[in-house]
Measured scan of single mutants.
Amino acid sequence: KKKIKIYIENENGEKKTIEIEVEGDIDEIAKELAKKYNVKIVKIEP
C-alpha cells in the first residue's frame, strides 16, 4: 500500500487535499474518485 495525496477542485473552485492509502493503479483510483465526487483532479503526489 502507498500513501498518496490527491489535490482536487470542486465545481465551486474550492480546493482540497485528500490523503489516502491505495493499492494498485493510482491513476485509475483517482479517476474513480473524481467521477464519484464530481471533482477535478489537480495533482497527485506519491
Rank of each mutant, 00 (worst) to 15 (best):
K40Y: 06
E14C: 15
T17L: 07
K2H: 12
Y7E: 05
I6Y: 04
K35P: 01
E14A: 07
Y7N: 02
I29R: 04
G13R: 02
L33R: 00
K40D: 04
N12S: 12
K5E: 02
K35I: 12
I26D: 03
E23A: 11
E21W: 15
P46T: 14
K2Q: 12
E19V: 10
I44E: 02
K1W: 12
I20V: 11
K16Q: 12
I4C: 06
I18H: 02
E11A: 13
G13H: 04
L33D: 00
E28W: 09
P46I: 15
A34I: 08
G13S: 03
K16A: 14
N12Y: 14
E28R: 11
I44F: 07
K1H: 08
K16N: 12
V39W: 15
E11R: 08
K36N: 06
A30F: 11
K15H: 13
V42T: 06
K36A: 06
I18F: 11
K43E: 06
I41D: 02
K35S: 10
K35R: 14
I26V: 12
I44W: 11
K2L: 14
K36S: 05
Y37V: 02
K3P: 10
G13A: 03
E19H: 08
V39Q: 03
L33F: 14
N10V: 07
K36Y: 08
D27V: 11
N10A: 13
N38R: 05
V39S: 13
G13F: 02
V39K: 01
K15D: 05
E11P: 09
A34N: 02
G13Q: 03
K3L: 12
Y7I: 10
I41Q: 02
I8D: 00
I8M: 14
K40E: 06
I4G: 02
I8H: 01
A34R: 06
K16D: 13
N38D: 04
N10W: 14
E21H: 07
E14T: 09
V42A: 03
D27S: 09
D25I: 04
K35C: 04
G13L: 02
N10E: 10
K5N: 05
K35E: 13
I4K: 01
A30I: 15
K5C: 12
I4A: 07
A34Y: 05
E21N: 07
K5F: 11
I8C: 14
D25G: 04
I18V: 06
I20E: 02
T17Q: 05
E45N: 03
I18Y: 13
I18K: 01
N12L: 13
K1T: 08
V42N: 04
D25S: 10
E32Q: 11
I6P: 00
E32M: 12
I8N: 00
E9C: 06
I29M: 10
Y7M: 09
K31D: 10
K16M: 15
E21C: 14
A30Q: 04
N38W: 03
I6F: 15
Y37W: 15
E28T: 11
G24W: 03
K35N: 06
I20L: 14
N38V: 03
I29C: 09
E11T: 12
I26T: 06
E23M: 10
P46K: 06
A30N: 02
I44C: 03
K15G: 08
I29V: 10
Y37H: 08
